[in-house]
Simulated scan of single mutants.
Amino acid sequence: MDILDALRKEKIMAMIRGLQPDDSDRVIDALVRGGIRFIEVTTNTEGVYTLVSRWRKEYGNDVVIGVGTVLDVEMAKKAVDAGAQFLVSPNLDEEVIEYGARQLVDVYPGVMTPTEMVKAVKAGAKAVKVFPMGSLGGASYLREVRAPLDRIPMIASGSVGLHNIREVIDAGAFAVGMGGNLVNKKWIEEGNYAAITELARACVIAITG
């Protein structure tokens, strides 16, 4: 499977962060029911590597599983050993990108500036995560930075939700990363996983409609 091509098609990468394993299991099930096929589970989620290994077996090729908040090569190694199909970072770490390239695992580093974007691609990143989108100015920032850098696939992350997902895609985002605006912790506390499924479905329709 070409992970980047698959992400180009799916457009939405849902992030699971800081949950207990049982809740993480219920959330991924809710997301998949809603049509989400790309899941990023972060390193500050309890049992992250065990979850990745188990989900890879349970979901097979139906879902693409990656690890987020990968801050150094040691984390990257643990994630790859667990079966992660891609790695995501909030920052630009060239050693992590180079390690991923050697392992044939895509790394999507967090970047803010044009300089960081070009540096990431030169280090071997196939796409970059523009983060934090909300603080940077949202779709308008993305549109402006893509004018000279339109060959770099950009994943918009931070403050992306149903209310602006279409606007962000139209501004040139290759895909979007969605955390709390999709994986609503209040709903999780209430056990309302059906609401997450419904929101996931609405986001998929907003992307494809």
Rank of each mutant, 00 (worst) to 15 (best):
I97Y: 00
I97D: 00
I97T: 00
I97P: 00
E98F: 03
Y99L: 04
Y99E: 13
G100P: 05
G100S: 05
A101Q: 13
A101P: 02
R102L: 06
R102I: 03
R102V: 03
Q103I: 03
Q103R: 13
Q103P: 08
L104T: 07
L104D: 12
V105Y: 04
V105R: 07
D106F: 15
V107I: 09
V107L: 04
V107A: 05
V107N: 01
Y108G: 07
P109H: 03
G110Y: 03
G110W: 04
V111L: 07
V111P: 13
V111H: 06
M112I: 15
T113G: 06
T113W: 01
T113D: 06
P114A: 09
P114S: 11
T115L: 10
T115C: 04
T115S: 14
T115M: 13
T115W: 07
E116N: 06
E116D: 06
M117A: 12
M117G: 09
V118S: 03
V118E: 04
V118Q: 08
K119I: 05
A120W: 04
A120D: 08
V121R: 12
V121F: 04
K122M: 10
K122F: 04
K122T: 10
K122V: 12
A123Y: 01
A123D: 05
A123S: 15
G124S: 10
G124Y: 00
A125K: 00
A125C: 06
K126T: 15
K126Y: 08
A127S: 13
A127G: 11
V128K: 01
K129P: 12
K129E: 05
K129M: 09
K129A: 04
V130R: 00
